[in-house]
Computed example of a mutant assay.
Amino acid sequence: MTGALFLTATVAGVISVPLIAPDNGPHARQAGALMVLIMAGAIALIPTTLFPVLRRYGEARALGYVAARLLEVVMLLPAAAGPLMAVAAPSPPVEALVRTEERWGQPASTLFFCLGAVLFYTLLWRARLVPRWLSGWALVAIAPYVAGAVIVLFGVVDPASPVNSAMYAPLALNELVLAVWLLARGFAVRAAAEVPQRPAPVPQGV
Rank of each mutant, 00 (worst) to 15 (best):
S109R: 08
T110L: 13
L111M: 14
F112K: 00
F113W: 12
L115T: 04
A117F: 09
A117I: 04
Y121P: 04
Y121H: 15
W125F: 15
A127Y: 02
R128Q: 14
R128I: 01
R128D: 02
R128L: 01
V130I: 14
R132C: 13
R132V: 15
W133E: 09
W133G: 10
L134N: 10
S135P: 13
S135K: 10
G136D: 14
G136V: 13
W137C: 09
W137R: 10
A138Q: 04
L139W: 03
L139R: 05
L139Q: 02
V140F: 09
V140I: 13
I142Y: 10
P144M: 15
V146C: 10
A147T: 11
A147Y: 14
G148K: 09
A149N: 02
V150T: 12
V150M: 12
I151S: 01
F154C: 06
F154K: 11
G155A: 13
V156F: 15
V156S: 15
V156Y: 15
V157D: 04
A160T: 05
S161L: 00
S161R: 00
P162G: 06
P162T: 06
S165P: 00
A166Y: 10
M167H: 01
Y168D: 02
Y168G: 06
A169P: 01
P170N: 03
P170I: 06
L171M: 11
N174I: 03
E175R: 08
E175P: 04
L176H: 12
V177D: 02
A179H: 12
V180Q: 03
V180R: 08
V180E: 08
W181T: 00
L182I: 06
L183C: 11
L183A: 08
A184W: 08
A184L: 13
A184G: 07
A184E: 03
F187C: 02
F187H: 08
F187M: 05
F187T: 02
A188R: 07
V189F: 04
A192R: 08
A192F: 06
A192V: 08
E194D: 07
V195K: 00
V195T: 07
Q197K: 11
Q197E: 12
Q197G: 06
R198K: 13
